[in-house]
Design a protein around this nucleic acid. Structure first.
Lengths: 228, 228
DNA sequence: ATGGTATTTATTGTATACATTTAGGGCATC
DNA sequence: GATGCCCTAAATGTATACAATAAATACCAT
């Protein structure tokens, strides 16, 4: 995407994530054009890409609306993420290069540093370092298709909301998982890496579930992951 | 997508699948506009959607190019498909409704009918019925996110090429799998459904591999699936 | 002759004007 | 008073003109 389209994409996405554009709200192209300071053409480009990434849904001749995430869909996302990110970890155990491992270690150390100063700890920084870690792992798995599928699953409001409801203990455990997965990769133990990664995603799912209280159906869906 | 955009999408996609637009070729917006009889605006919409569905890749300020599928990427696709479609089968074993099961049975019967007349058998009809079967199964799994992720993985040149290189025995075995999976769903046996579906995808992968001769790396990636 | 630079040209990116579609409201009719 | 139709307004869909970008080419200087 080029300049104006990218600018519009970033701006609209930001407002969706911040809640300024709430779930279900109708995004009108002309309004967005005013807000973003560009014409409707790049706005339409941005909306198409946001739809491809599941942030919004477009209905022909009616417009585009901010996606609503039902409890079931959120469970689905975590289940798929556990499966795919676990697989990525297994692949990375065999394929990871030193540079990628170093990047992951750097992210872990950065998070440790953040956790070492609880007074100034902020979730945004954790979020950024966490993203850096997982991005490096996906790159290490060496499958573009897997990486892009995962990015579309993960780059969602739900992940950000999960992090927001983390307690300090959750952050500490999360980075313990990061270190453990990294060690598994260095040992070349794909099964260990996969298992640890699945645990990592499970833990995140249950934090989310506690914070937002999902439905019965979701509970059932959540158990599917346990039988994998 | 609305009329003109959809028309352009279908037409361009058809030409990619038929080989008229070969891998790596540069799709110029004005040419496409002439071919499709619409202006550049819906062409651009169509190209964005084709990029989201991995048919083409867009490079800013340079244009869009028909995707090239390396052996590694094709292996990746089959591995991911086995994982996700297997999971869909497991979910469907618990969630499938009678209507969806009937649709799947109808597709199986149609394929049986095709196979019963080997003289007039054509792969296009099989392809259509096969698609109908898998679409119904994904619907039965009851996860929109899973279904759309799978569709993006599967609706690709690689699947069509696989079918093209099927022998008569391959078609017969393929539909035997379909019947078996359907029975597993009716029994509510998720583990059976998943295992049978994985076998189904494995078989397709090896047909492809024999026909197109994938690289060593791909062989390695292919084995990953066995350790799941 | 070769290297770098300006110019040209082909292509994509952006803006805007116009067409089409659809929802909502008002009016007439039953 | 309810119902059906038409008309209007607001939004999206489409076409086209213009701008910006990048590659290719020609030209000049060394």
């Amino acid at each position: 995407m080029s300049k104006a389209s990218q600018k519009a994409y970033d701006e609209i996405r930001r407002r969706i994530l911040s809640g300024e554009f709430p779930e279900g709200s109708h995004l009108k192209e002309e309004e967005l054009a005013d807000i973003c300071g560009v014409s409707r053409t790049p706005i339409r480009d941005a909306l198409r890409k946001l739809a491809a990434d599941y942030y919004v849904r477009s209905v022909p001749n009616h417009g585009t609306f901010v996606s609503h995430w039902s409890g079931e869909e959120i469970s689905d996302i975590f289940v798929l993420r556990a499966m795919l990110e676990g697989y990525a970890a297994r692949l990375a155990a065999r394929r990871a290069k030193n540079q990628e491992l170093a990047e992951m270690q750097s992210a872990c150390e950065q998070i440790d540093a953040l956790l070492g100063k609880p007074n100034t700890f902020d979730k945004e920084s954790f979020f950024a370092a966490n993203k850096r870690y997982h991005t490096a792992l996906r790159a290490a798995a060496g499958s573009d298709r897997l990486a892009s599928t995962l990015t579309r699953l993960v780059e969602q409001p739900v992940v950000m909301r999960t992090v927001i409801s983390y307690t300090m203990e959750d952050f500490i455990r999360s980075n313990a998982h990061h270190w453990e997965i990294l060690e598994a990769l260095r040992e070349g133990d794909g099964a260990w890496a996969e298992a640890a990664m699945r645990g990592h995603i499970h833990a995140a799912y249950h934090v989310y579930r506690r914070a937002y209280g999902l439905s019965d159906h979701s509970e059932q869906a959540a158990k599917d992951i346990l039988t994998l």
